[in-house]
Simulated scan of single mutants.
Amino acid sequence: MTNTITDTTENALYHYSPITERPPISWPDGKRVAFYVGLNVEHFLLDRPSTSIWPGTSELVPDALNYGWRDYGPRVGIWRMMESLDRYGVRASVLLNSDVVHRYPQIIKAGLSRDWAWLAHGRTNSILQAGMERDEERRFLAEVVGTIADATGRRPRGWMGPGLTETFNTPALLAELGLSYVLDWTNDDQPYRLNVPGMISVPYSVELNDLMLFGNGGTGERFLQVVKDQYERLRTDSEHSGRVMALALHPFVTGQAFRAKYFDQALEFLTAQPDIWLTTSDEIAEAFLVDSAPQRGRRPDGAKPV
């Protein structure tokens, strides 16, 4: 099997593996649900459409309405969220656009002092690598990873594409750069091995995600209830095998003043649960790789042979 996946009619990146037919996963100290905050720390270009709260002006240059909404995140929202994360001792797993290094160095400094985990998240959320040729993407990924490594003093272990985008070459190219996991495939409650040597998928969520929850008119009360419901069901499911709960957040959304208390209350609830492992996506990937080291007769994704 080659590392490059070119068949566009079948997903050769991973096998189908029902969660009921896998070897059990054990988290440290007997915890049942591994929880991490996926904090999207992003930069957006002024002259391109991107995530918008009001589509009516999204094609304008400049688009003061939508750009300003997004720009609230690094200016105000993230600092408000830091207060809650600090209050409950939660380390963020930062999905970092490499342009943030140059644009908002104060955020990098604050994250380093908090020992955040740093994942590569493209150069900017206004540029996707989807459609790139292999050599172009190799250069792009190397520049993104190198910029983050230089700024943080540690090489990223994980990747999430801007807009959760990849090419068929992305996982193999990331493996060449020494990364070990991706978040782009939001199809599971457990990590699993990809058919690219050394690469796994770690759960991320497009549903337990503030853009989805608040973007569809959701309230803070609903956000809090969804967080509780997610944890409680995953804890039930994890009786015999560990699960992962990812809370995907954007500072220009959750960092708004009128949502702050609900984020605070969500962390208060989660950090009080005795069966939760408060961790980072890096540590989840590392624990899974150790726990599921390939055994004779086991498929690359850890499932039983079929």
Rank of each mutant, 00 (worst) to 15 (best):
A266E: 01
A266M: 02
T219S: 15
V253Q: 15
P294G: 08
Y231D: 06
A303Q: 11
L289M: 09
Q256P: 02
E268F: 12
K228L: 00
Q295C: 02
E268D: 14
G255Q: 11
R296I: 05
E268S: 14
V226C: 14
K304L: 06
N216I: 07
I284W: 01
P300L: 00
F258P: 04
A257I: 09
E286R: 08
Q265W: 13
G215T: 05
E239M: 14
F288E: 03
Q295P: 00
E232P: 04
H250P: 04
R259S: 08
L234A: 01
N216R: 14
D229Q: 14
D229H: 15
Y262Q: 04
L289H: 10
A272N: 10
S292H: 10
Q225P: 01
P300N: 08
A272F: 13
K261Y: 10
A266K: 04
K304H: 13
Q225E: 05
D291M: 13
T271P: 00
P294C: 08
T254L: 06
Q256F: 13
Q230P: 00
D291I: 14
A248V: 15
A285K: 12
T236K: 15
E286M: 03
T280V: 05
S238V: 15
A293V: 08
A246E: 05
A293M: 09
H250A: 05
L289T: 11
A257D: 07
G220S: 04
T236A: 14
L278G: 04
S241E: 00
G255P: 11
G255T: 13
A303V: 06
A266P: 03
D229I: 12
A293N: 06
E283V: 07
H250E: 07
D282S: 12
S281A: 12
Q230H: 09
A246D: 03
D229K: 12
A293D: 06
L267F: 06
K261W: 10
G218W: 03
D264H: 04
D237T: 04
P274V: 00
Q256S: 05
A266D: 01
V244C: 06
E221I: 04
G220I: 08
R243F: 09
F223N: 09
Q295A: 09
Q265H: 07
S292A: 02
A303W: 12
T271Q: 06
G302S: 06
A260Y: 13
T279N: 09
A272R: 12
Y231L: 14
R298P: 09
L289D: 02
A285I: 12
T280Q: 07
V244G: 07
E268K: 15
I284A: 04
G302R: 02
A260W: 12
Q256E: 05
V227K: 06
L247H: 09
L249V: 11
W277C: 03
L234Q: 07
W277Y: 07
A303R: 11
D237V: 05
T271G: 05
F288R: 00
A272M: 14
P294W: 14
D282K: 11
L249C: 07
F269S: 08
V226D: 08
Y231S: 10
V290L: 11
G255K: 13
F223Q: 08
R222L: 13
G255R: 15
G255W: 09
R235Q: 08
F252S: 02
